[in-house]
Structure formats: C-alpha cells, structure tokens
C-alpha cells in the first residue's frame, strides 16, 4: 500500500506492506537510523518519535497509521545548522552515555518544552517515565532538559 507522510518537513512517500511498523519504515525505507529500535513491546521508549508534535512509540504505530501525519525524528531537531536547545543541553550536561535512549529522550523533552516551557524536575521525570536509560543516567537527563528550558532558541525567545 501507498503511504505518504511528512518526515522532518519533507514529503516521504513509499509503497509498503500494511504490517510495516513506523520504526522500520523510518530506519529502513527512509534510512533515518537516528530512531532506535529496542524492546519492540512499547516499554523502553528508544523508538519515540513525534507524530503531530506528540511523542509516540514508533514500534507500536503502523507506517500506515502515520500516513497523512507529520513525523519528527531526531534528524529533524537541528535547524539550519543550529542544534535544538535540547540537543545542546544533552551535550552541556552529559545527558547521554551510550546514546541508545537519547533520540527518544530528546524528542519527548522537546514535546514537553513545547507545552510547558519551564517544567519542574517532577514534570520532566513524569514526561520521560515511559523511557528507559540503561546507563541509568536519569539525573543528567533531567539536568539537560532543565538546561534547554533555561536556554530557549532565539526564535522561541523572541516569540515569548
């Protein structure tokens, strides 16, 4: 079947089997391997991408279900050579160790900050509670998100 969606601002069209999961469509059909594939059971959250701005576990969404929607992966976070403040925060505050959970964590953080530009630590922890960091680096992840909240991108800062 034909699927057509917007991925990181660009139209992506392909012919896929209906059973194709969004995570495999992104990684294999589009070659966007920044989205990771982990537990396959919607528990670990490494496959999180944004669908219409909200985090979803792409191992539990069919590519067909995402057709017609707007998908953002970690490759779409950086704009015109500028890292998203969340990405910058993860660098500044050592928000990653092995990096496996990082793309999902950063996208969930982005969605959180879009709704709530100044979250508390508890709100950050709640937002990422469906995602697992096996390096157990949660403290630095929370710190990284807080850094991003304190350093909004120029256009965001101008808009608020």
């Amino acid at each position: 079947m034909k699927v057509a969606m917007t991925v990181n601002g660009q139209e992506a069209t392909a012919d896929v089997e209906p059973r194709t999961l969004l995570v495999h469509f992104l990684r294999e059909t589009l070659g966007l391997t920044g989205t990771h594939w982990g537990c396959d059971t919607s528990n670990c959250g490494v496959c999180v991408v944004l669908m219409d701005g909200e985090p979803v576990k792409s191992c539990t969404v069919l590519a067909a279900m995402a057709s017609g929607h707007d998908v953002t992966t970690v490759e779409g976070m950086e704009r015109d050579g500028q890292l998203d403040p969340v990405q910058q925060g993860f660098m500044e505050c050592h928000g990653l160790q092995c990096g496996f959970c990082t793309s999902g964590m950063m996208l969930t953080a982005r969605a959180l900050l879009d709704r709530n530009p100044d979250p508390t630590d508890d709100e950050i922890r709640e937002a990422i509670s469906g995602q697992i960091c096996r390096c157990t680096g949660y403290a630095t992840i929370v710190r990284s998100v807080r850094w991003a909240a304190a350093h909004p991108a120029q256009q965001e800062a101008a808009a608020t």
Binding site: S42, G45, V48, E54, P55, V56, K57, T60, V61, T108, E126, A127, S129, G130, Q131
Partner: peptide, 9 residues
C-alpha cells in the same frame, strides 16, 4: 495506566 507516551495513543 502505562506511561505518558503510551497514553498519547
């Protein structure tokens, strides 16, 4: 119920 990301769907 599950976690916030699952609850989105």
């Amino acid at each position: 119920i599950a976690d916030p990301v699952v609850r989105n769907r």
